[in-house]
Every structure is written in C-alpha cells, then in structure tokens.
C-alpha cells in the first residue's frame, strides 16, 4: 500500500491532465454545446452524425489511408536503409526529425507548387504531362501529404531500426552465410525477426502520427481542395473553434481515440 503513496503524485498529474480532459470530452460529446453558453443533452446524436455525415466519414477514411503512407514508407525504407548501412545512419537521415512539422510542411508546399522543384525536375526529364500542382489537385493532394509525412518520419524509424540491427549478434549473420544464405534470406531469417520490436515501435509511432495528423495538413492544404485531405484532428479543430459545435467535435475526438486504440492495440500485441 505504501507504494501507492509514491505513485500518487504522478497519478494525480495523469488524472488531472490526461484522464479528466478525456472524461470531459466524452461527456461533452453527449451534448449540443457552442463552447460558451448553455448546453442541451442530445444522447448519441453526435455519434450518429459522425458516422452519417459524409464529410466526417471521409476524414476518418483519409486518416486510415495516411496510416499506410506514414507507416509503410518509413518502415520499409527504414528497414532497407538500416540493413544497408549497418554501421549506423548518417546525420542526413535523422535530419527530417529535427525539422518542425510546420516548417517541413511549408518547405514541401514550395517544393510541390506549380513552379516548385518537383515539377521542374519532372519537366527536365521530359515528363511535362505529369507535372501538376500536387497539393492543389484533389486527386494527388492526399498522396502528397502522405509523402511529406513519410519523409518527416523516415529519420526516426531509420534511427530506431538501425539501433536494433546493430544490437544483433554478428555471429548469426556469419552462421547463415556459412549455410549459404543470400542477402534476402539473411534479411528474412536474421534481421527481420531480430528487429521485430523496433518495427512494432515504428509502426506505433508513425500510425499515431498519421491518425492524429494536424500540423502538416493544416499548413499545406488546410483540408482542401474540396475536402480531399480533411483529417479527423483538423475536423475536430474546425468544428470546435470555427463552427462552435463542441459536442460534435468531442464525439469525433472520442471516435478518433477508439480508432487509434484499435489500430495500435494489435501492433503492440504482435511486437511484444
């Protein structure tokens, strides 16, 4: 029981700053409230709105698509880089992690603009037809945001995975090589099982970044064009502060929490 006394301060802070807001959000989600005046009880209406409103539903789908880009890109590329550069990643690879997401978003929106470096490069190799305003075209905007997020997260994944790779016993590599394994077999038999935990952590970090993405989307597209890149966190922000629909915003936030747990839970169990 005395152990509890020691934990109490931390638990109190956790309760006040994490659990209480979470509980208040869940409570607000059952009301119609403008954030200032009186509120009215609406029961589950806000949750019904979250799943029936096409705009809000789309934002949840976009978040799941971003998980594929944010997690898939950095984990696969990170694994390849970590394996190839077994001595350790160079500073260049970690650099994106040191750039604040807002700055990265601004820099990328210049690169991806109609006269930006990406289009110039495409035109230089004769791909005039491919060049476009990547962030201003509803068919490419979400993919472009995915690339920016993947770029920003590549560093941390490479760092984590190469730490994992370096931890592996070189004797294992020697053994499979004596058994006549090729590089790919070496990777499958030694590297991948060895860094399973690190892969798990990477997937968790990147999926969280995708599901709760806000800053990159806010500065590059603001959710546009025509709602093509709307994501739940941005919708929560607009609902609560522009439309003053605090109840609906809270319901969407709760759904987002559930979605995050549903995505992260299995990954954590797998990597354990």
């Amino acid at each position: 029981m005395r152990g509890w006394l020691f934990v109490l301060p931390a638990l109190a802070v956790y309760g006040v700053f994490v659990l209480r807001p979470l509980a208040l959000t869940a409570q607000s989600s059952l009301y119609r409230w403008d954030g200032v005046g009186p509120s009215t009880w609406v029961g589950a209406d806000n949750y019904v709105a979250v799943v029936t409103d096409p705009g809000l539903r789309d934002s949840l789908v976009h978040a799941l698509l971003l998980v594929v880009a944010f997690a898939g890109g950095p984990v696969l590329l990170g694994l390849a880089l970590a394996t190839a550069l077994r001595p350790g990643p160079s500073l260049v690879l970690v650099l994106p992690q040191a750039v604040p997401p807002v700055a990265a978003g601004l820099a990328w929106s210049v690169l991806l603009s109609s006269t930006g470096a990406v289009n110039r490069a495409l035109e230089a190799v004769g791909l005039h037809g491919v060049a476009r305003t990547w962030l201003g075209d509803s068919s490419t905007a979400l993919a472009a945001v995915g690339v920016i997020g993947a770029w920003a997260l590549l560093g941390v994944c490479t760092l984590l995975l190469s730490a994992g790779v370096r931890r592996l016993d070189p004797a294992l590599y020697e053994a499979v090589r004596l058994d006549g394994a090729r590089r790919w077999q070496e990777f499958r038999a030694v590297t991948l099982p060895g860094v399973r935990r690190e892969v798990g952590v990477c997937v968790v970090i990147t999926s969280l970044a995708a599901l709760s993405s806000f800053d990159v989307v806010y500065v590059t597209t603001g959710g546009g064009p025509g709602g093509a890149t709307s994501v739940p966190a941005l919708e929560v922000f607009y609902l609560a502060f522009a439309e003053r629909e605090v109840g609906l915003a809270s319901a969407l936030a709760v759904v987002l929490v559930v979605l995050v747990l549903a995505v992260i839970g299995p990954v954590l169990r797998w990597s354990r």
Binding site: A12, R20, A23, W33, V36, G37, P38, W41
Partner: peptide, 20 residues
C-alpha cells in the same frame, strides 16, 4: 479502481457550459 475514481473526480454532474 483508483484510476476510474480519479477520472470521475474530474467531472461534475452538471452539463457543460453555463447560462451567460
């Protein structure tokens, strides 16, 4: 139990907002 109690402590029974 303690976590749940702490969480409940944070919420009053009243609806959010107030009459201005």
């Amino acid at each position: 139990l303690a976590v749940v109690a702490l969480a409940l402590l944070g919420i009053g029974c009243a609806a959010p907002g107030s009459d201005l």
